[in-house]
Design a protein around this nucleic acid. Sequence first.
DNA 1: AAATAGAGTTCCAAATAATAGAACAGAATA
DNA 2: TATTCTGTTCTATTATTTGGAACTCTATTT
Lengths: 264, 264
Amino acid sequence: MSAAKENELGRRDTGTLGKLMVLLDVVTHADGPMRFTDILALSDQPRGTLHRQLSHLVEEGLLEIDADGRYSSGLRLLDLASRSWARNEFRLIAEPHLRALQDLTGETVHLGVLRGSSIIYLDKFEGQQPVRMYSQIGNTSPVYCTGVGKAALSILPRERVAALVADLAFHQFTANTHTADTLLAEIEEIRKQGHAFDREEHEVGIRCVAAPIWSENLSLVGGVSVTGPAYRLTMERLSEWAAPIRKTAEQIREAMRIGLGPRR
Amino acid sequence: MSAAKENELGRRDTGTLGKLMVLLDVVTHADGPMRFTDILALSDQPRGTLHRQLSHLVEEGLLEIDADGRYSSGLRLLDLASRSWARNEFRLIAEPHLRALQDLTGETVHLGVLRGSSIIYLDKFEGQQPVRMYSQIGNTSPVYCTGVGKAALSILPRERVAALVADLAFHQFTANTHTADTLLAEIEEIRKQGHAFDREEHEVGIRCVAAPIWSENLSLVGGVSVTGPAYRLTMERLSEWAAPIRKTAEQIREAMRIGLGPRR
DNA sequence: AAATAGAGTTCCAAATAATAGAACAGAATA
DNA sequence: TATTCTGTTCTATTATTTGGAACTCTATTT
């Protein structure tokens, strides 16, 4: 009797799955393991219902429950994600170019894609020091305070950027973090330049240059970036790298066009 | 009218979620993107039903569909998994000990947990060379051909091992890969020794030593291993490392007992 | 030690979502 | 143009999920 197949945000209804994913998100985004009652307080479901939903998630390995009855996210996710990552076409195509860019600059190179209003990091190449890689891969950051995020926005149609920015909550991470107005202004600048800087907007002492990568129909929008400590990456240095990073982005874009071109 | 809440394997029914997870598994385990018809052939659902299920998975970001209508696993999984990994208590507790073991041996150190009949790798520490880390983390390997797997089995009650082995399909990866009989025999040996070797049983040219780690009630069963190329890791060398690796495992076990001890 | 409160689990009729099958549409092929 | 193959939409039927209450177990209070 009700009606709509879409909710107010234009997302289509995903029925039972949608409700379970909300729970999975709640537990996964929590600071630590949650007790049944904690989750109950955040979900507007009756106890019996919530109990069954959590049981199903646990049974499937998406959540785990410890000896104290506290829920945390399950390792099944790791298995699924590692396969997803290993086979990701964008990442596979970009890999050699990222490696080359890392060799050229000696600094950390990231590959990211736009998903909703966040950038999700798909890959990372660091220099000499054996660093924890997983620490970044899979992480998400807001679009408005990362080089890749701003670069990605710069190639979207203005109305899409406006809609996206309108729904955004701007958290001020540093003194340089954008607000809606300054962000929109800078996007215009980036459109002309073809590359974006992150001037310690997310983390004090960290700067980066980024260039956008996109597929023909915008089904994939992302970017590459070179990141490093501000003392080493002066703005002059970053500006010098703008050209090579745009070139890398261009090469990846071209490789994807070919890679995806022949319809099998 | 039917009846059972459990299926033949003792797994409880997870309703709609279970059906969707089967699909997610099918797509995730495939070699490449799958077309609708490919999935239809593997699932015993009617077309209309399958179509809606896939739509829901795509809408939630668990699957993605490309311009050619081919399905592959979605990046939402990466985000969820990276959080799951970052907060994993076992991994956090084990980290310093793994690092120390890596320093001591100079070879690759793995942390794994038993999940069903597979070992899922939770962490990895390599030496000097900046190697792709994600390449192993989240990967799963059969219990019967990994050091960590055999070590883990050795601390399970015999009847659980027997049940697990009975359900296993033994794929012969190398000339040294175990069969059910040789595996059960070796498990007995490992019980006495306290450590397990992988004598090129999974991959030719790769050897390892592993020791089990487990929580009091066996809610967590896993192990640490030191892995490397056979030319460098002679059996003598591996035997020398058996004691330190057992000690590392013991330290992690103790740290977990304390870490999990005080019930908050 | 008994009583009480808190947390989690189980149960079942009612509400809702998923299903099966057929009809429909679009693209590729003959 | 006709035909087949692939994917999408629709609807009555069926199955699952829901919500609320009753129940169990454990910790806390009197």
